[in-house]
Simulated assay, not measured.
Amino acid sequence: MSERDESTHPTDGSTVPATTPKGSSPGARLARNMVFYTIVRLLLVLALTLVIIGLGSLAGVQIPVLVAAIIAVVIALPLSMVLFSRMRAQINSDIAEVDAGRREKHDDLRRRMNEA
């Protein structure tokens, strides 16, 4: 059993929260990173929308906000894949860590059910 397993499953029956090296649970870290990533992507869409409207007005063309927003979303998708690749990689590792914890708990539950 690893040190993390012992901290989450003590032998005396009490529950002790697991600690990770970064000081927060993987689920909380995943939620925080997802919220941050979502906000950054929305800000990118907003910035691109404003740039499209600005370029339109410089060219003397009135671009509706909805059309500019749709174009911005289409541009932001591949752009965010490139610009925010490190954030996505961190989120993927957080998802893998949460999934591993769930799998560990599931296996532990199965093991205890088979022992009973």
Rank of each mutant, 00 (worst) to 15 (best):
T19I: 06
L66C: 03
A18D: 07
L50F: 15
F84P: 02
L83W: 13
R41G: 03
A68D: 03
S57C: 01
V65P: 06
I63M: 11
V61C: 05
G56E: 02
I71Y: 02
V67Y: 08
S57M: 09
Y37V: 00
F36L: 11
V40C: 06
V65D: 08
I71H: 00
S80N: 04
A28M: 08
G54N: 09
M34I: 10
L48A: 07
A68Y: 05
S57E: 13
V65I: 13
V35K: 08
R29E: 14
A72T: 00
A69W: 12
V73G: 15
I52Y: 03
V67H: 06
L58H: 06
V61P: 01
R29Y: 06
L58I: 12
G23Y: 10
A68C: 04
A59G: 08
T19A: 10
G54E: 08
T49N: 07
L48H: 01
A69D: 00
L30C: 04
R29W: 05
G23N: 10
F84A: 14
S57N: 09
S80Y: 07
T49L: 00
T38L: 11
T49I: 00
I63W: 05
L83Y: 12
A28P: 01
F84E: 11
A47N: 06
L66H: 04
S24F: 08
I39G: 02
V82Q: 11
L79E: 00
L46Y: 02
G23D: 11
S25K: 11
R32V: 09
T20I: 01
T49P: 06
P64E: 15
V45Q: 04
S25A: 12
L79P: 00
L55F: 13
G54M: 08
I70Y: 00
S80D: 05
I53V: 13
G56W: 00
P78Y: 13
N33P: 01
L77Q: 05
L77P: 01
V51F: 09
T49R: 03
L46F: 00
V82A: 14
Y37F: 12
A68I: 05
G23A: 10
L79F: 07
L66D: 10
S57Y: 10
A76Y: 04
L46W: 02
I71Q: 04
V65N: 06
I53C: 06
A69K: 02
A18G: 15
I75A: 03
G27S: 13
S80H: 03
V45C: 03
L44T: 09
L55S: 09
S25C: 08
V40H: 07
V51Y: 09
L30M: 15
P78V: 10
T49M: 07
P26C: 05
T38F: 12
V45K: 02
V61E: 14
R41Q: 08
N33H: 13
S25H: 09
L43G: 15
T20H: 13
V73C: 14
